[in-house]
């Protein structure tokens, strides 16, 4: 495990990562958690065109996230990514 945490918004499509920290404030974090986005959850970025919202898959569900929200989710890239 490394210390280099990235923002989810910086991942490319196809990259996989593990959620480490949420910094979006209580209300938003609680909604993220109910959709499966908790620390320790594995996710894969499905679509990220560098602007606008992005799509990620977490716990078998596709979630659309605003770029602002994605920027507040800190993740650690997995080695097994194919991106």
């Amino acid at each position: 495990m490394t210390d280099t945490l990235l923002s989810l918004a910086d991942l490319q499509a196809g990259q996989r990562a593990t959620v480490r920290e949420l910094r979006a404030g209580r209300a938003v974090e609680s909604r993220l958690a109910s959709l499966g986005m908790t620390p320790g959850a594995a996710l894969e970025v499905v679509q990220n065109y560098g602007r606008g919202p992005l799509i990620v898959t977490v716990r078998g569900t596709r979630i659309a996230l605003g770029r602002g929200e994605a920027a507040k989710i800190l993740v650690e890239r997995s080695n097994g990514s194919h991106g």
Binding site: A24, A27, V28, R31, L32, L35, P53, I55, T61, R62, I63, A64, L65, G66, G68, E69
Partner: peptide, 11 residues
């Protein structure tokens, strides 16, 4: 102000 955009994309 802007509210958070978090939405499921159903199958």
């Amino acid at each position: 102000q802007r509210s958070a955009f978090i939405m499921e994309m159903p199958l």
